[in-house]
C-alpha cells in the first residue's frame, strides 16, 4: 500500500478544490480569504489532488478540511499535529497540511506543536492566529494581549501571551513565516513558500475574527498604519519599512536599532540585510514583538523569517528501516522461533 506515488503534476484548478459543503464561517471572517488563497495556490504546487491531505484539530479554523476537496481529517482539539506526524511518518509521499489555530496549536496542543517542530517532518503548518477562542464564543487565548477584555476576562486578561514564532524558534523550527488574511498577494506567496519548503514549515497567519476580536491586527493591515507597523522581510534585502520607505533597521553590533533614512545619517547600505538562513539573526527578528502602543517599538515582521533545511524525521525513519532490511531478511518464522526451541514428539 505504500508504493511511492510519482509527483507528476496533474492539472486541477482552484475550482476543483471546492467541496459541496456549505462554508459555515461567520460572514466577514478572515478564514474565507485564507481558504481562497490556499485554493488558488494549491494547483501550482506540483501535487496530485489525491496526494494532498488536510488535517485539522478543533476551532473555527479547523473546519477548513471540509471545504477542500482533497483527503482530509477534522480531528480533536490540539492533536492535528500528532495525527499528521503519524500519517506523514507512515506515508512520506503524501503532501500533508495541518490547519490549526492559536488555541488548538498553542494551548491544548502546545506539547505536540513543539515536538512536531523539533522532529521536523515535511509537513505544512498553517496557524490561524486570531488571538481569541472563536468557536466557544469569545474567551481569551494564549496569544491574546495582556489586558484584553473577553467573555472570560471581563476585567482584562492577566496571562502573558505567547510569541508563536519565537516559541517555534526555541523548538528548533526549520521554517518560520508570518502573513495576514488581508494581504492576499503576500499570503499567496507565503503559502507557496510554505508548501515548497522541505521540513516542518510554520506559517502564522494573522486572521481577523470579526465577531469576537475585530480589528486585532488592523494596525498591520490598514492603509493608514500598515507601512509604519508592518515590516515585510525578503531574503537578501535590507530591512526597510515606513511611509515611503523612510525607516530601516540596522544592527549596532548585536543590538537592532530603528534608523531614519531621511536625515542622511543612514542609508540603505547601513541596514541589516535579511538572511533567512541565519538562525541567530532570525531569532532576533522573531523577537520583534512589541505592542504597537509602545514608544519606539519595533515594527512587526512579515514574510519568511527563517528557512534552513535540516533532515526530516520521516526520511530518517525509512532510511533506518531500509538499513535494517538490508542487514536481515524479514523471516516471520525465524522471529517466532526465537533463540532456543525444542521439539516434543
Amino acid at each position: 500500500m505504500t508504493e511511492v506515488l510519482q509527483h507528476i503534476p496533474e492539472v486541477f484548478t482552484a475550482k476543483d478544490l471546492v467541496t459541496d459543503q456549505e462554508v459555515r464561517w461567520c460572514p466577514g471572517c478572515g478564514d474565507y480569504s485564507i481558504l481562497k488563497q490556499v485554493q488558488t495556490v494549491m494547483p501550482n504546487l506540483g501535487y496530485k489532488k489525491e496526494e494532498i491531505v488536510f488535517v485539522s484539530g478543533i476551532g473555527c479554523s479547523s473546519r477548513f478540511p471540509y471545504y477542500m476537496d482533497t483527503f482530509g481529517m477534522h480531528s480533536i482539539h490540539g492533536r492535528a499535529t500528532a495525527i499528521a506526524t503519524g500519517l506523514k511518518t507512515s506515508r512520506p509521499e503524501l503532501n500533508v497540511w495541518i490547519v490549526t489555530g492559536d488555541g488548538d496549536a498553542l494551548s491544548i496542543g502546545g506539547n505536540h506543536f513543539i515536538h512536531l517542530l523539533r522532529r521536523n517532518l515535511d509537513v505544512n503548518l498553517l496557524l490561524f492566529n486570531n488571538q481569541i477562542y472563536g468557536l466557544t464564543k469569545g474567551q481569551y487565548s494564549p496569544t491574546s494581549v495582556e489586558g484584553q477584555v473577553t467573555k472570560s476576562t471581563p476585567f482584562g486578561s492577566l496571562d502573558h501571551p505567547f510569541n508563536p514564532l519565537a516559541l517555534a524558534m526555541g523548538a528548533d523550527a526549520s521554517f518560520v513565516a508570518r502573513s495576514m488574511d488581508r494581504d492576499p498577494k503576500h499570503l499567496q506567496q507565503m503559502i507557496e513558500r510554505t508548501a515548497k519548503f522541505k521540513g516542518t514549515s510554520l506559517l502564522e497567519i494573522y486572521q481577523n475574527c470579526n465577531v469576537f476580536n475585530d480589528g486585532a491586527f488592523f494596525t498591520y493591515t490598514d492603509k493608514e498604519t500598515k507601512a509604519g507597523e508592518a515590516l515585510f522581510v525578503e531574503n537578501g534585502k535590507p530591512l526597510i519599512y515606513g511611509e515611503g520607505n523612510n525607516k530601516g533597521i540596522r544592527l549596532n553590533n548585536t543590538t537592532p536599532e530603528i534608523v531614519d533614512l531621511t536625515t542622511g545619517e543612514f542609508s540603505t547600505t547601513d541596514l541589516w540585510v535579511h538572511d533567512e538562513k541565519d538562525y541567530l539573526k532570525s531569532t532576533l527578528l522573531t523577537r520583534f514583538f512589541d505592542s504597537p502602543d509602545l514608544e519606539n517599538h519595533f515594527p512587526r515582521p512579515f514574510g519568511v523569517l527563517y528557512a534552513k533545511e535540516r533532515p526530516c524525521y520521516e526520511d530518517a525513519v525509512h532510511a533506518q528501516i531500509a538499513y535494517a532490511k538490508e542487514g536481515k531478511e524479514a523471516d516471520l518464522d525465524s522471529i517466532i522461533r526465537g533463540r532456543q526451541t525444542w521439539v516434543v514428539k
Binding site: S75, I76, A82, I83, T85, L87, N111, H115, A324, A330
Partner: peptide
Amino acid sequence: NFGVITFQAEDEIAAISSTIGASYG
C-alpha cells in the same frame, strides 16, 4: 527489518493520535 515503525511519542495522547494518523494512511 519487517518494516515496523516504532514511534516513541511525546506523550500518551500523541502516541494514540499519531497511530490514528498512521491507520488513516
